[in-house]
Design a protein around this nucleic acid. Structure first.
Lengths: 213, 213
DNA sequence: TACTACTGACCGACCAGCCGGTAAGTAGAA
DNA sequence: TTCTACTTACCGGCTGGTCGGTCAGTAGTA
C-alpha cells in the first residue's frame, strides 16, 4: 500500500491525497481489530506517515471513524438507488442484480462497515443515527419499493411487506459479518456464491405468485 | 438488580452465588457498551460489589468474558439440539418451534452474544474458535439435519444444502443485532414477530416440494 | 483469636491528542 | 542554473487521563 518508508519518498507532500490514504488504512485496521483496539499510531504506520499527520486532517479518532463510514457507504448506496429506479425491469431481476453487486463488494473491506456499526452503535449514538437514517432507512425503502412493485405487477403474491422487508438483506449481512469475524477463525467454509444462489432461489420461489414451474 | 448496598445484607452474600451475579451484570454491560468500553469497576458496581471481588472469581477481564459467553450459550444450544432430535416431528414443525424459542430469547440480553462475538472475534481468536466450534458449527449441523430429513421425506424439494444452511438463521441474527445496536438509536420500528412470521412463510413455501396450495 | 469474603486506594501500562522542531518544496533574484 | 529566504506538510517525543490488575487492610463470623 502507501507504506513505502524509504527515506527518499518519505516527506513528499501529498496534501490532496492524504485524507483518502488515511481513511483507507483506517478502514483496513478498523475492519480487522475493531475501533477501540486500533491505535492511531498503527493507522499512521499503515498509511506510511507519522501519527501527527493524521491530526492535520482529522480532529479526533471519532471523526476519522465517521469519515471512514461515510466514504465507504455513500457511493454504493447511491448506485443501488439508481439501479432500483429503473421502472421497466422485473422486480426479481433487480433483486438478482443487487445480489450480484453485493458479491463483488464482498471482495473488499467495505463489508466490514456493518460489523463496526453493530459493535460501536452504543458508543457513538450520532454515528448510529447517521447510519440508521442514511443506510438502513434508505435501504429498506428501496427494498420496499421493489417488493411493492413486484406485488402490484403480479410477479409476487401479496405478503406482509413490513415483515418481509429485512428478509432480503439478512443473508447478505450474515455473509459480511462472517467474512470479517468468525470466518477468519474457523475451518468452516461458507461459499458466498452458493448462499446467494440458494437465497435467491428460495426467496423468489417463496414470493412467487401461484404459477412457478 | 443485585445492587442493594445496604450495609446490613452486604456481607451476608455467599461465595457460591457471586460468580453468577458477576456474569449476569457483565452480560448486561457488555451487551450495552461492548467489551472494550465496559469498565470492570462498572461491572462491580452493577453487581453490587467492589472491584477487587471480581478478581476473586475471574483471573482477568478476558476470562470473565469467556464465562459470560459460555454461560449464555451452552444451555440454549443444548435445548435446541434435543428438540431437533425428535424423529417424528415434521421438519417444518421443528423450524417453527425453533423460531418461537428465538422470539422468547430475544426478550433477554442473551441475544447480545452474537454482537459481542462479531465485534471481538479479531481480538480474541480463542474465543472466536470456541464459538465457531461450539455454536456455529453445531448450529449448522442441526439445521443441516433438519433440512436433510425434510428433503428425504419429501416435505422439501431437493436443494443445495450447503448454500441453504445459513438462510434459516440469518433473519434471527439480524433481529438480534438490530435489537442491540441500531434499533436503540432510530425510530425505525421492526416487529420481530412479523419478521419471523414472514420468514417462515416465505422460507417454507420456497422450500416446499411441488404441491403447496 | 483465627478465619475469610470482601474492599478500594494505588500502581503501571497504554494511548489519544499536543506541540515544538525539521526539512521538503518554492519563488524570486542574480 | 544556483543561491537564499520563506512557507508549511510532516514528524515523533511527551503529557494527562484512563483502566486492568494488585494487595494490605477491614469487617463480619465462629
Amino acid at each position: 500500500m502507501a507504506s513505502d518508508l524509504s527515506p527518499a519518498r518519505r516527506r513528499s507532500r501529498r496534501k490532496a491525497a492524504r485524507p483518502g490514504e488515511i481513511v483507507e488504512a483506517a478502514l483496513r485496521l478498523f475492519a480487522e481489530r475493531g475501533y477501540a483496539a486500533t491505535k492511531l499510531e498503527d493507522v499512521a504506520a499503515a498509511a506510511g506517515i507519522g501519527k501527527g499527520t493524521i491530526y492535520l486532517y482529522f480532529a479526533t479518532k471519532e471523526e476519522l471513524f465517521r469519515a471512514v463510514v461515510r466514504q465507504a457507504v455513500l457511493p454504493n448506496l447511491q448506485a443501488a438507488v439508481e439501479l432500483a429506479a429503473d421502472p421497466d425491469r422485473p422486480a426479481a431481476d433487480i433483486l438478482r442484480v443487487l445480489a450480484e453487486r453485493f458479491l463483488v463488494m464482498l471482495q473488499s473491506d467495505l463489508t466490514a462497515i456493518p460489523k463496526l456499526i453493530v459493535a460501536e452503535a452504543g458508543n457513538f449514538p450520532a454515528l448510529a443515527q447517521f447510519y440508521a437514517d442514511e443506510v438502513a432507512s434508505k435501504g429498506m425503502a428501496l427494498i420496499r419499493g421493489i417488493l411493492a412493485r413486484g406485488i402490484a405487477r403480479g410477479e409476487f403474491r401479496p405478503i406482509d411487506l413490513d415483515g418481509a422487508l429485512p428478509l432480503f438483506s439478512a443473508p447478505f449481512l450474515m455473509l459480511a459479518l462472517w467474512k470479517h469475524s468468525l470466518g477468519r477463525h474457523t475451518d468452516i467454509q461458507i461459499d458466498p456464491r452458493a448462499v446467494v444462489a440458494a437465497h435467491l432461489d428460495i426467496l423468489l420461489r417463496g414470493l412467487a405468485a401461484k404459477a412457478t414451474p
